[in-house]
């Protein structure tokens, strides 16, 4: 039987995923990743079954690895920013 997952553990992976997602250099991927991570954790908030939480946590780690790798791939090639980003930068 696996040890129960602590709240701190879940919070930690959640924050790491958000931080890594916000590193996508392509605007649309970045916005989607952040939105999807937030919604996924919100959806699974009510889950109380230990083994199910364990399963979700494993999945989250797998996703974190994908995000990290794809952020690197995205950084390898330079491309122009979108109009909407340029506009937002000007505003700030």
């Amino acid at each position: 039987m696996a040890a129960p997952v602590t709240r701190a553990e879940v919070l930690k992976i959640y924050k790491t995923m958000l931080r890594e997602s916000s590193k996508f250099s392509f605007y649309n991927y970045r916005m989607y990743a952040v939105r999807r991570v937030k919604d996924a954790f919100r959806e699974q908030k009510a889950v109380s079954d230990t083994s199910e939480i364990q399963q979700h946590l494993l999945e989250a780690h797998r996703f974190l690895d994908i995000i990290k790798r794809q952020v690197i791939v995205g950084d390898l090639y330079k491309f122009d920013k979108l109009v909407i980003e340029v506009k937002n930068n000007e505003k700030n």
């Binding site: 649309n28 920013k81 979108l82 506009k87």
Partner: peptide, 14 residues
């Protein structure tokens, strides 16, 4: 002023 936004998902998707 930057790359255009993409709103042509029926042609192709990223």
């Amino acid at each position: 002023k930057g790359k255009p936004l993409y709103l042509d998902a029926q042609a192709t998707t990223p």
